[in-house]
């Protein structure tokens, strides 16, 4: 008898607004089974969650209206969550420009649209530190910043995995991962794979 392949990990992608389909494809490339989540019941049976890029104000509005605030807060207390751009804003402890509600899962302060408007969006190659190289693989990472936020403060429990222009852009705290850029818009699977190791 041949060995059964180990079942793929089920990873939810919050599918209220934004580039959730790009994340679903990136998760598939990284070897997971993506599940689109747009109601509280969808959180049952998934091993982790991705909060994608998009407009954080729109997502917050829909989270509030559809009664997902509490279930999402419960989920982040128990299981790994990966937030990119708008998702990073939703997971932060403190949000500025302007101030708004966030889940506070990662001890950092983040400023929205901190690089400026779309004309200030950019693609940069960043060089992550040794920790990233050891756990995710060697080499630079192509980072796509779109109307991106900047992390202005990180708490003592937060580990910075990569910086760009002196600011942290890829960080982790325990089971949670945060990127202010969009790894889902490139074909490099390393960051999504790194997230899967947290399950």
């Amino acid at each position: 008898m041949s060995a059964m392949p180990s079942p793929r990990k089920k990873v939810g992608v919050l599918a209220l607004q934004g580039d959730f389909e790009a994340h679903a494809k990136a998760l598939e490339r990284a070897g997971a089974e993506p599940v689109l989540v747009n109601r509280a019941g969808d959180l049952e049976g998934i091993d982790a969650l991705v909060i994608p890029g998009g407009e954080s104000t729109t997502m917050l509005k829909l989270i509030g209206e559809t009664g997902m605030k509490e279930p999402l807060a419960d989920f982040t207390a128990k299981k790994p969550v990966f937030g990119t751009c708008a998702g990073a804003i939703l997971l932060a402890k403190e949000v500025t420009n302007p101030e708004q509600f966030s889940f506070g899962a990662v001890d950092l302060s983040i400023e929205r649209n901190a690089y400026g408007r779309q004309v200030d969006s950019r693609v940069a190659t960043i060089e992550p530190g040794e920790e990233f190289a050891k756990r995710a693989g060697e080499g630079g990472v192509e980072a796509v910043f779109i109307r991106a936020p900047i992390i202005r403060r990180t708490g003592p429990g937060v580990r910075v995995l990569a910086e760009y222009a002196g600011d942290p852009v890829l960080v982790e705290q325990g089971k949670h991962l945060i990127a202010t850029f969009h790894p889902e818009l490139t074909s490099d699977p390393r960051i999504h794979r790194l997230f899967l190791t947290k399950i």
Binding site: A15, L16, Q17, G18, D19, F20, E21, A22, G53, G54, E55, C85, A86, Q118, S121, R122, V123, V144, I146, R147, H182, L185
Partner: peptide, 11 residues
């Protein structure tokens, strides 16, 4: 980058 912003507006 231009297409990227359109991706963020989906849905």
């Amino acid at each position: 980058l231009k297409v990227g912003l359109a991706e963020m507006l989906k849905g």
